[in-house]
Simulated assay, not measured.
Amino acid sequence: MFSENIYINTNFKNKFDSSDLNADSPPAPQKKTTTHESCHRFSKVLLTSFTVYFLLLTTLFSVALINKVWSCCPKHWKPFSSHCYFTATDSASWSESEEKCSSMGAHLMVIHSQEEQDFITKILDSQAAYYIGLSDAGHRQWRWVDQTPYNESATFWHPGEPSSDNEQCVIINHRYSGWGWNDILCSSKHKSVCQMKKICL
């Protein structure tokens, strides 16, 4: 009987110890901690991404706004590329026309590309002729008023022009073949096109 009691007590003690151990051991929180850390890390990455995206958008918007607002032309002048253009409707000689442009901080128009030629002809009256900033210093040495080089491959003479050594100034006018350049006497009275660089404030 004594040995039975010892067996029962031992068995009961083993049961108690084992249940006691189960009660004391906390549930494994590692999965929760890992999930929580991952979520926290993801939030940080997302916040950083949004911040960078917002700053980039703000920078691009600012650059676009500055270019649009601060690069401009005076009232009644037409913008194209980096220049502004004004068509003078009163007739004058070539030198008088250049003086008038100069008084506005500009010069007679200089044309270096087909795009520029096409732009200006769209806003001109096809029934009129307009002085541009090209003249002959003598012996058919054509020069632009702004001292930029005269490029033979970027000229828009009408067929058969220039036609006379005595005609040392140039107009742009419309003929049956379209818009083009024509040499003319510098004393002739015509309208003109002035050009200046865009104003950047």
Rank of each mutant, 00 (worst) to 15 (best):
2 F>R: 08
25 S>L: 15
98 E>P: 00
46 L>G: 01
77 W>H: 07
114 Q>P: 00
34 T>H: 03
180 G>T: 06
94 W>V: 01
64 A>D: 08
68 K>C: 06
176 Y>C: 07
184 I>H: 04
117 Q>P: 05
135 S>R: 06
172 I>K: 00
40 H>M: 13
182 N>R: 03
19 S>F: 09
19 S>V: 10
192 S>W: 08
92 A>S: 14
109 M>Y: 04
150 Y>W: 15
26 P>W: 03
53 Y>S: 13
46 L>K: 03
42 F>P: 01
24 D>E: 02
128 A>I: 03
20 D>K: 14
38 S>C: 11
47 L>Y: 04
93 S>G: 09
184 I>Y: 04
137 A>K: 13
157 W>N: 11
175 R>I: 03
137 A>Y: 09
139 H>K: 13
191 K>H: 11
20 D>Y: 13
46 L>A: 05
95 S>V: 13
194 C>V: 04
104 M>E: 14
130 Y>G: 06
17 D>I: 02
158 H>A: 15
190 H>E: 15
133 G>I: 06
64 A>K: 14
63 V>S: 11
144 W>C: 02
30 Q>C: 02
107 H>P: 00
194 C>G: 00
145 V>G: 07
196 M>S: 11
171 I>W: 05
162 P>I: 08
177 S>D: 12
168 Q>N: 15
98 E>Q: 09
104 M>S: 12
67 N>V: 03
168 Q>R: 13
126 S>R: 11
145 V>P: 01
169 C>N: 01
151 N>Y: 01
85 Y>Q: 03
157 W>A: 04
123 I>P: 02
16 F>L: 07
49 S>I: 10
192 S>R: 07
183 D>Q: 04
127 Q>K: 14
114 Q>I: 05
82 S>I: 06
132 I>Q: 01
52 V>T: 15
134 L>W: 01
180 G>A: 09
7 Y>G: 12
158 H>F: 10
200 C>R: 12
135 S>W: 15
164 S>N: 15
148 T>R: 14
81 S>L: 12
165 D>G: 03
197 K>M: 09
40 H>S: 13
91 S>R: 07
23 A>I: 14
159 P>F: 04
186 C>A: 11
87 T>Y: 04
136 D>S: 14
179 W>I: 00
114 Q>N: 05
58 T>W: 05
121 T>Y: 00
179 W>N: 12
38 S>K: 08
31 K>Q: 12
143 R>L: 07
119 F>M: 03
119 F>N: 08
11 N>H: 02
